Simulated assay, not measured.
Amino acid sequence: MADLTQEEWSEQLSLDDNAVILDVRTEDEFDNGYIPNSINIDIYEGQGFISKIKELDKSKSYYVYCRSGNRSGQACAIMNQLGFEKAYNLVGGIIEWEGDIN
Rank of each mutant, 00 (worst) to 15 (best):
Q12I: 00
D23F: 09
N102L: 11
T26L: 07
S14L: 00
E29F: 13
S38P: 13
N89E: 02
N80Q: 14
Y63P: 08
S38D: 13
I101D: 07
G93M: 08
K86T: 10
Y62Q: 11
I43M: 08
K60C: 05
G83T: 14
I53E: 04
E27V: 15
G99P: 04
R71H: 04
G46M: 13
C66R: 08
L4P: 01
I41L: 14
W9G: 02
N70A: 11
K86Y: 14
I95P: 00
G48H: 04
D57M: 10
T26W: 09
K58M: 08
S51H: 12
Q47S: 14
V91F: 08
Q81D: 15
G73R: 00
Y44R: 13
T26E: 10
F84R: 05
L4I: 02
G73E: 00
A75C: 06
I94H: 00
M1E: 01
A77P: 00
I35F: 02
F30N: 13
N70G: 09
G93T: 11
V24F: 11
R67E: 07
Q47D: 15
R25H: 12
P36C: 10
D28M: 14
Y65H: 13
L90M: 02
W97E: 01
Q6H: 05
D17F: 05
D42V: 10
S51F: 10
L22F: 12
Q47R: 13
D100H: 04
M79E: 12
S68M: 05
Y34R: 09
F30H: 15
I21H: 06
V20N: 05
E85V: 08
E85F: 04
L22R: 04
L82R: 07
I39Y: 09
G48V: 06
N102T: 14
A19Q: 01
L15W: 02
S68K: 03
K52M: 01
V20T: 15
Y44C: 07
N37M: 07
N32W: 06
Y65E: 06
D3W: 02
D17W: 03
S14W: 00
S59V: 12
D42E: 12
S72R: 04
Y62A: 08
L15Y: 03
D42S: 10
I95L: 05
Y65C: 03
S10R: 03
E55W: 10
Q47I: 15
I41M: 11
G93A: 09
M1S: 03
E7P: 01
S72Y: 05
G83Y: 13
Q47N: 14
S59M: 11
Q81A: 11
